[in-house]
Write a protein that binds this DNA or RNA. Structure first.
Length: 289
DNA sequence: AACTACTCCTGGAGGC
DNA sequence: TGCCTCCAGGAGTAGT
């Protein structure tokens, strides 16, 4: 599930509660989700301290003492919950099912990390697609480069000019598949791709080479504003594809049959790149032609 | 290079 | 109630 805003929110939540803590005990109950590089095993975490928590695209990266790194990818349904020795919620984030306040471990809790203060970090992942990598810090750069992730859309270094240059390299690609391509841009997933296309008033099927001179600027502003808004004001709240009608976000994703918040036209559901896609036919000129 | 289809999984929703 | 199908916020791989 979690896309850039959810992972960034999780990172900000965990930072104050985990940095400085030492691993005391590690329990991996679903072995396939743990990938130790250079022969590292889960128990190699014990005694290591969390020095820093970073994010790259949808990856959550723990820099550890003694030159190790622990990397999480929550994929579709992973969540992390950090609880104190007494079971008090310290921090949580990721996929909201099961509810963050539910008893832990849940039957889908596949890894737990105990710390020196008695607190525990639980990884719960119903669909088992999430992964954890433990690797030497010296391998982290290669590890990240191998996935060829595109630029960080919220970084200062990500400019409109950079976006234009990257669009120019893929002129025949349709907008939504390009936004989902992690080598084009790091961190956008299915919900935010729809929200960005809506904000920019662009069809998810529009070939980006046909946007004309002005629209890339709209797209750039939409990428920045949609992701920034989500990180700042709280993230998407969806349960199994159903939008929570109490919230104004997402504005179009999951809202087939509801009126467009801009023009009132009924939002439709279609499939683009094999993913459920929700455009406003009028605002976004969908379908084209 | 750039599509699609299939794969890894579980579980909730809705049709009958 | 049960059974069935479809769908779900990701991404790697294989085929065309």
């Amino acid at each position: 599930m979690p896309e850039l805003p959810e992972v960034e929110t999780l990172r900000r939540n965990l930072e104050p509660t985990l940095v400085g803590r030492r691993f005391a005990q590690v329990d991996i109950t679903l072995p396939k989700l743990f990938l130790g590089l250079a022969g590292l095993q889960p128990d190699d975490l014990v005694g290591r301290r969390v020095e820093r928590i970073r994010r790259r695209a949808k990856l959550l990266v723990f820099d550890l003492s003694e030159d190790l790194a622990l990397v999480f990818h929550l994929r579709l349904s992973g969540q992390l919950v950090h609880r104190s020795r007494d079971g008090v919620a310290l921090a949580s984030g990721g996929h909201p099912v099961p509810a963050f306040g539910a008893p832990l471990p849940h039957k889908a809790t596949h890894a737990s990390f105990g710390f020196d203060d008695g607190s525990v970090l639980y990884l719960t992942d119903i669909r088992q697609f999430g992964r954890i990598w433990l690797l030497p810090a010296a391998m982290l750069r290669d590890f990240l480069e191998r996935s060829r992730l595109g630029p960080e859309p919220l970084a200062d270094a990500f400019s409109e000019e950079q976006l234009r240059a990257r669009l120019a390299r893929r002129p025949r690609a349709a907008l939504k598949p390009l936004l989902l391509d992690q080598t084009f841009l790091g961190g956008v997933g299915n919900i935010y791709a729809d929200e960005i296309a809506f904000e920019a008033r662009l069809s998810p099927l529009a070939p980006v080479g046909d946007l004309g001179p002005e629209r890339p600027a709209d797209l750039y502003r939409a990428i920045r504003s949609v992701l920034h808004h989500a990180v700042t004001n709280g993230v998407a709240d969806i349960r199994n594809g159903r939008t929570n009608p109490e919230r104004d976000f997402p504005r179009v994703h999951g809202r087939a049959g509801q009126p467009c918040p801009r023009c009132g036209t009924t939002i439709v559901k279609t499939h683009v790149a094999g993913r459920g896609t929700y455009p406003c036919p009028r605002c976004q000129g969908y379908p084209p032609g």
